[in-house]
């Protein structure tokens, strides 16, 4: 199992070629419609007077997603940003703030972040959720933050994500606990991903 990281922590991570040059910084992560895997990154330039770049980085050009940098083969890996975000949305627009329900209709909570797998896989393995009171009771002042595995299938309807009740039976309080949870979940859900 590769290292797990949250999608929001990828923002500002440098994009570095194998030659050692930093070409850009990650602005946001782009995922597919069902939040199955990362399909690319939008970028900002380096240095101070920069804004969003017109280029983006497709996942197929990523050599490895690491803890400190996104490695690419070379500067030619970048493609036009408009082409990539035409049919796909960034994680920020797609899943952040969405309601998470189970198939049975139980409200799990509000999605704060997506948890992705580093390395070459780029799978979305779960969500960080501000749990609703019924799902995970916590202190009265604020809602408990838990990590919820994604499970095999996620149905997306507008701003609502529906996961299977089986997947959210176990949750974790931190990312390291979540790694153990996802690595040890029995069943064939890992193989069932495309």
């Amino acid at each position: 199992m590769n290292e797990l990281m949250t999608a929001r922590s990828l923002t500002t991570r440098p994009v570095v070629t194998l030659g050692g040059d930093a070409v850009a910084h990650v602005k946001d992560t782009v995922c597919d419609a069902a939040a199955t895997r990362i399909t690319g990154f939008t970028l900002t330039g380096r240095g101070l007077p920069t804004g969003p770049l017109k280029e983006a980085l497709p996942w197929s050009a990523v050599y490895s997603l690491g803890h400190d940098a996104v490695m690419v083969q070379g500067r030619r890996a970048l493609v036009s940003a408009a082409a990539m975000t035409a049919h796909q949305q960034t994680v920020r627009a797609r899943v952040l703030g969405a309601r998470l329900l189970t198939e049975a209709g139980t409200e799990v909570g509000t999605v704060l972040d997506a948890v992705v797998e580093g390395g070459t896989g780029g799978r979305v393995v779960g969500f960080r959720v501000a749990a609703s009171r019924g799902f995970a009771p916590g202190p009265t002042r604020h809602r408990r933050r838990v990590y919820v595995p994604r499970g095999g299938t996620v149905e997306v309807a507008g701003r609502t994500l529906v996961v299977s009740g089986e997947a959210v039976r176990h949750v974790a309080d931190d990312l390291s606990g979540f790694g153990a949870l996802v690595g040890g979940v029995p069943g064939g859900w890992r193989e069932s991903l495309p």
Partner: peptide
């Protein structure tokens, strides 16, 4: 060693 650039030695 793979490469030496302005950001890092890879």
């Amino acid at each position: 060693l793979l490469g030496l650039g302005d950001h890092a030695l890879v």
